[in-house]
């Protein structure tokens, strides 16, 4: 099952990227950023990464189907 292995491998890579962005010192950086339109940058960052991870996961899952 090489295709499903590839699928799992891509998702694992995405998992590690998400881990890096959300649970490493990188996630602490936005606390010191400046507000954007009066919105706290940390929320924007976390929601942004979250949405990005979901979008990539969806892309991997749907694209790998063909």
């Amino acid at each position: 099952m090489p295709r499903s292995t590839l699928f799992r491998q891509r998702l694992l890579t995405l998992f590690l990227i998400a881990l890096l962005l959300l649970f490493s010192p990188l996630a602490l950086r936005p606390e010191s950023w400046e507000d954007w339109l009066g919105l706290p940058p940390l929320f924007l960052y976390l929601y942004g990464v979250w949405a990005g991870v979901i979008a990539l996961a969806a892309w991997i899952a749907i694209r790998g189907r063909d």
Binding site: S4, R8, L11, L12, F15, L19, W50, V53, I54
Partner: peptide, 16 residues
């Protein structure tokens, strides 16, 4: 947020 970020991340490993 972590209560929902954790599941989001683990879901990426559900393929296995």
């Amino acid at each position: 947020l972590p209560i929902y970020l954790g599941p989001t991340l683990i879901a990426l490993l559900w393929g296995s």
